[in-house]
Amino acid sequence: MADKSKLPVPQPTPETQHFWDATKAGELKLQKCEDCSHIYFPPRPFCPKCASKSVKVFSASGEATLYSYVINHRPHPAFDGPYSIAVVTLKEGPRMMTNIINCEQTPERLRLDMSLRVVFEDLSQDIALPYFEPMEASS
């Protein structure tokens, strides 16, 4: 039986605390540069494109598309059977790693560029992880 406690729990830093506070509250936060409008992830208190410190945190739509993935076949105590490790492109532009859940873990179901939406699941008392699921219900 899958035991999520076998996964290493992310440990926020001062620069990322806002992101993890938001996932716990069911929101996905990104950052935007107020000088050059670049939207970026992961969090840091300056723009990695123009070095401006004038950046703001905003709520992302939670919509994404599937950029690429693998299906890991080696046994992992936190998963039942083969599972996807994926990278998704958020509607706002940045990419992030995730697992695609609520979907059969097969190449036939996991189609590149399919539409996804974010869902959050608790990993510990303090940390909720963003996952993604197909926009259209999967069989």
Partner: peptide
């Protein structure tokens, strides 16, 4: 777990290079 990879990639069940180096290929 407080590094950026630790925070934003570490909890998705990666098992080292076999599940990360390979992701771009599809």
């Amino acid at each position: 777990p407080s590094s950026l990879p630790g925070q934003f990639e570490g909890a998705y069940g990666g098992m080292g290079p076999t599940t990360s180096f390979t992701i771009p290929f599809l």
